[in-house]
């Protein structure tokens, strides 16, 4: 559907790992009046990828995005897009578009005018412009809202306009700065799916910034975890979740309990831990330890258990409340329980 997007089938996102490099950041650094925002970032993003920069606020992910968009200039390093350094190129000369967290829709323009803005700036012919705007609006399911003003739309609809306004330009790279941050949970989850769907449909490389690890895991091909202006780990969702390379990643992506055994620290994901009544036997090869139940929280789909082991280690476990599954552990606070896990899932950090 898209003239500017690369040839189609090889683009199936899951196979992107072998694709060519679209964006390369090397040694990028940025400080504001002495306060370092980005220490030194090296990053490669492949064509067609859905790449997420994940990290807490102030970790440098948004600054990195703004450097790529061209809203800021790096103090050092290069930002290559398609092999050309554009660290000093103005935003309007970069083949990059941005979806803003608070939408940044122009309030005096209708939805259609907002979406057409970039095309008009590039002097796209009127007829083509009209067609592309209609197509983009159809893609975000806002075809019937073309004539409305942004103030007449809901939050989710505004975010779609923001998305349409960016993708209508068919950029080589689309930057999304916490685009779902302002939406409520249900809408956010719907939009996550829709975004992913649209990305697959248009085949544009997405560079996504979020502080929500669940969002990152559910949408991304690869994730870069930012901390204090540097990247701690880059990998697929499975890699960063299952095999975090640093304690920070282990803690930030998903929740985990840290146990120290034989001088080493291991990370235990709560869903990998089972809580059983004392006296039951663990499955073969599983490791079991006794502790006291400190808390039990019913979460609907899951129940969360907090268990304090004899040496003071706190272990968190979640178990699905599935029909026919282990079922609810009928234990009260303070009662002894058995926690069980497969040593293979205890990841050294």
């Amino acid at each position: 559907m898209n003239a500017m997007s690369p040839p189609a089938p090889t683009l199936a996102t899951k196979t992107a790992s072998g694709g060519e490099i679209l964006l390369r950041l090397s040694g990028v650094r940025k400080a504001y009046r002495g306060a370092v925002a980005v220490e030194s970032v090296d990053l490669e993003i492949r064509r067609g990828e859905f790449f997420t920069m994940l990290g807490p606020s102030g970790s440098g992910k948004t600054t990195t995005l703004r450097l790529i968009a061209g809203f800021e200039q790096p103090d050092a390093g290069t930002i290559e897009l398609d092999g050309v350094d554009m660290a000093r190129t103005a935003p309007f000369d970069r083949n990059v578009n941005t979806v803003f967290q608070d939408y940044a829709l122009f309030p005096h323009m209708s939805v259609a005018e907002n979406v057409a803005y970039g095309l008009k700036a590039k002097r796209v012919a009127a007829a083509e412009c009209r067609d592309r705007v209609a197509e983009a609006l159809r893609m975000v399911q806002l075809a019937d809202f073309a004539g409305r003003l942004p103030a007449q739309l809901s939050g989710g609809q505004r975010q779609r306009v923001g998305l349409a306004r960016a993708i209508v330009n068919r950029p080589g790279l689309l930057l999304l700065d916490e685009p779902l941050g302002a939406l409520d949970l249900k809408l956010r989850q719907d939009m996550q799916l829709e975004l992913k769907h649209i990305q697959e449909q248009v085949g544009i490389t997405f560079l996504y910034v979020t502080h929500d690890q669940e969002e990152a895991l559910s949408m991304s091909d690869r994730i870069a975890i930012f901390n204090r202006g540097e990247i701690e780990q880059i990998g697929t969702p499975e890699e960063v979740y299952e095999r975090p390379t640093t304690p920070f990643v282990a803690n930030f992506v998903g929740s985990s309990s840290i146990v120290k055994r034989r001088g080493r620290r291991f990370m235990l994901r709560p869903e990998k831990v089972q809580v059983l009544p004392v006296g039951e036997r663990a499955a073969f090869g599983f490791h079991g330890e006794e502790g006291r139940l400190e808390d039990r929280v019913y979460l609907g789909m899951f129940t969360k258990y907090v268990v304090r082991l004899g040496d003071g280690t706190k272990i968190v476990a979640v178990q699905p409340n599935a029909e026919g599954a282990t079922g609810q552990l009928e234990k009260q606070r303070g009662e002894p329980v058995l926690v069980v896990w497969n040593p293979e899932t205890a990841w050294p950090v």
């Binding site: 103005a90 578009n97 941005t98 608070d102 940044a104 122009f106 803005y117 700036a121 960016a166």
Partner: peptide
């Protein structure tokens, strides 16, 4: 005028004069 309107306009390919005239 929110600051990111200027960024959004530039991001969408508009130079200074167009941003001034249209936004």
């Amino acid at each position: 005028i929110p600051g990111n309107f200027f960024e959004a306009s530039g991001d969408l390919g508009a130079r200074g004069w167009r941003t001034t005239a249209k936004i």
